[in-house]
Simulated assay, not measured.
Amino acid sequence: MPDATVVHDEVVMADGAKMTARDVDVFYGEKQAVDKVSIDVDSHYVTAFIGPSGCGKSTFLRCFNRMNDTIDIARVGGRIELDGKDIYDPKMDVVQLRARVGMVFQKPNPFPKSIYENIAYGPRIHGLASAKADMDEIVERSLTRAGLWNEVKDRLDESGTAMSGGQQQRLCIARAIAVDPEVILMDEPCSALDPIATARIEELIDDLRGNYAIVIVTHNMQQAARVSQRTAFFHLGNLVEYGGTEAIFTNPRADRTRDYITGRFG
């Protein structure tokens, strides 16, 4: 692998991070996909993971809520903490972890249920509403936060799968925030959407910033520059550079970051 020296701006590796990763490795069988990555995720900022296809950014993202557990040949090493607790501790309740660390996938994946039931599903499982009025409030609040309430309030009984692609993705975001997560992971949430829907999702990310720690994987560097305050550049399974987004895009300190930002590879 290339030089493993990582350029970390000290401003993004501070005490009090919501999630921390230290020396994280990920293997798929014998193939190493992520090599000794250390990063802090702060609640107050949107953090973007950028890099060419196959660089390990999505694999690393999935470590934060143990989605790699669902892949038989995947093996994760190192340590990842949420509020100082090791999320790979055998005593960790993975269902509870995934309620605290929600995920929005590349392709919108609403349940084949009504819009209302898409949102109500998680709170019902986790016992967050004891009466229908409580559930109604959660559904309305979640859809409002996702910028969908005014569009769907008169058709909550319609299927979530009948919505447009952009609406479906906002429904999935509403579904994720319905269980009051602390962290939201987004794996290329706009790659299947048209520019107008993409703009709506980017506005939503900006609206949600500060209420949740948000981490977004994107192959779109302009999107990373627009929505994030922290950017991590990955290449060949390595974290190359991590710093403030403006600094990464205007004055990168690692040669590989500069070459990627200027289009010399990727």
Rank of each mutant, 00 (worst) to 15 (best):
P2N: 06
H8T: 15
E10R: 09
E10Y: 05
V11W: 09
V11K: 14
A21I: 12
R22K: 13
D25K: 05
V26P: 15
K31Y: 11
Q32F: 06
V34S: 01
D35Y: 01
D35M: 04
V37K: 03
S38R: 06
D40P: 01
D40A: 04
S43T: 05
Y45F: 03
A48R: 02
I50G: 00
G51K: 08
G51Q: 06
P52A: 03
S53R: 00
S53N: 09
C55K: 00
S58C: 13
R62P: 13
F64H: 08
F64C: 13
F64Y: 07
F64R: 06
N68Q: 12
D69A: 03
D72E: 14
R75C: 13
R79T: 15
E81N: 09
E81D: 15
G84T: 12
D89W: 07
P90I: 00
P90Y: 00
V95E: 14
Q96Y: 10
R98N: 13
A99M: 13
A99T: 13
R100G: 15
V101P: 14
V101L: 02
V101I: 14
G102A: 14
M103T: 00
V104D: 02
Q106Y: 01
K107C: 02
K113Q: 07
S114C: 07
S114V: 11
I115F: 00
N118L: 02
N118Q: 02
I119Y: 03
G122F: 03
G122E: 08
R124N: 08
R124E: 10
K132W: 06
A133W: 01
D134S: 04
D136F: 10
V139Q: 12
V139N: 13
V139T: 11
E140F: 09
L143D: 10
A146C: 11
G147T: 09
N150K: 12
K153I: 10
K153M: 11
D154G: 12
D154V: 06
R155H: 12
E158Y: 09
E158D: 14
E158M: 07
T161R: 07
T161D: 06
A162W: 02
M163K: 03
M163F: 01
S164P: 02
A174L: 00
R175D: 13
I177A: 01
V179E: 05
V179R: 03
D180V: 12
E182Q: 09
E182W: 04
E182S: 10
V183P: 07
M186D: 00
S191V: 11
I196N: 07
A197L: 07
E202V: 10
E203Q: 10
E203F: 04
L204A: 00
I205H: 04
L208V: 06
R209F: 08
N211C: 09
Y212V: 02
A213P: 15
I214W: 05
I214E: 02
V215W: 03
V217Y: 04
V217P: 09
T218P: 08
H219Q: 11
H219L: 10
N220W: 02
M221I: 11
Q223V: 05
A224C: 11
V227D: 05
R230D: 14
T231A: 04
F234R: 09
G243I: 10
E246R: 11
E246T: 12
A247S: 09
I248P: 03
F249W: 01
R256Y: 05
T257W: 01
D259T: 14
Y260D: 03
T262E: 07
G263I: 01
R264Y: 12
R264N: 11
G266Q: 00
